[in-house]
Computed example of a mutant assay.
Amino acid sequence: MRNIRLKNRGIKRRRKNRQKRPAEWLILLSIFSILILGVKFYEFMGRGYLLRSIELKCRGKIDLSVLQNNMGLKPGANMLMIDLKKIANEMERCSKIKNVKVFRNLSEGKIEIIAEERNPFLRVIEEGTGRCIDVDEKGVVIGNPAEGVKGLIFVTVSSIPQEVEYSDRNSSFVKNTLQKAVQILKEAEAQGISSEEISEIDLRNPADSVLFSSSGIEFHLGTDELSHKLKRVKRLLEETRKQGMQIEYVDLRFEKEAVVKLKT
């Protein structure tokens, strides 16, 4: 009797499973049909939203021809199929671009691009050649010097790599030179020294960073304890203004005392 009951239970389970299978296939078929209809509807709607133009809003001049060729942004393209994030990523590969936002204007058949450009903060000069590059406030290379930019602080270096315009933020030149200059300026600002009081930073000697004040004083900072040394620079600048002292250079690389040379 027990064996008969077990057999009956097995038969009932198989019947239930057979009844479930058609229902599962119907669900899968329905989902697949919905997806196909969605894609077709998306393509159908896209025919009514064709690309007519691209509008770029930015401060300077940027050539969009390369972007149009790489992304296939040609008149008549389906606007719903255009990858806006990919456009932004492609534009941000340009060293001059800091941030990009891209929008679809379906009513006018237009792709709108708003590009925020990097602002020059430093102008780096190669010793002996006069070759220059502009750098932003984070030590990122912008490229060749922009015309008409005023108030930049000059940084003198022994050499600029030829490929620097295409280097990433992890290159040795960016990390060891450009970011060091930015660090000095940021720390100087924290100590109350304005950018107007600084005319140049000399980084030709890796063991000694030299800051030139706008009044012509040469401050040797070395490489460590910048915060403490720049605090002394601020104090010395105030004293020279009050007392009318004519100082040629100040060496702050020694722990206890500053070596000061007066102008003769």
Rank of each mutant, 00 (worst) to 15 (best):
K180P: 08
F219K: 04
I201H: 03
S195I: 10
L178Y: 00
A207N: 09
F173Y: 06
S158V: 14
V149S: 00
A146N: 11
L152W: 02
V164M: 03
E218A: 07
S171M: 10
P206I: 14
A181Y: 00
L203I: 09
D202S: 03
L152Y: 01
D168N: 15
E147V: 14
G151C: 09
S199I: 03
A188F: 01
N144Y: 10
F212W: 10
V157K: 02
S159H: 05
N144I: 12
V157E: 03
I160Y: 00
N176D: 07
S209Y: 13
I193L: 04
S167L: 06
K186S: 15
L185S: 05
E197P: 02
S214W: 01
N205D: 13
S199V: 05
T156E: 14
K150D: 14
P145Y: 00
L152E: 02
R169Y: 11
E147T: 15
F219L: 10
K186F: 04
V210D: 03
E147D: 12
L203S: 06
A181W: 01
S215A: 09
P161E: 00
E218Y: 12
E189Y: 10
I217S: 07
V149T: 05
K180C: 14
G216S: 09
S172R: 15
E196I: 12
L211P: 04
A181T: 13
E187Y: 01
T156D: 08
S195L: 12
D168V: 08
S214T: 15
I184H: 06
G192L: 11
A188T: 05
E187N: 15
L178F: 00
L211M: 13
V210H: 02
V155N: 02
V182K: 09
S199G: 02
P206C: 04
P206A: 07
Q179E: 05
A181S: 15
P161Q: 04
S199D: 05
S167M: 13
N144T: 14
G148K: 01
S171L: 07
V164S: 06
Y166N: 15
Y166H: 13
V182N: 03
L185A: 07
E187F: 04
A188R: 02
A190F: 09
V149C: 00
E197M: 12
I193P: 06
A146W: 13
I184Y: 02
K175P: 10
R204V: 13
Q162P: 14
G216M: 15
N170Q: 13
S167I: 14
I217N: 04
E163H: 14
G148Y: 01
F173Q: 07
Q183Y: 09
I153E: 01
D208C: 13
R204N: 06
D168T: 07
E218L: 08
P145R: 00
I160H: 00
D168W: 07
A190R: 05
P206G: 04
V149Y: 01
N170Y: 12
I198R: 02
E163T: 09
S167W: 07
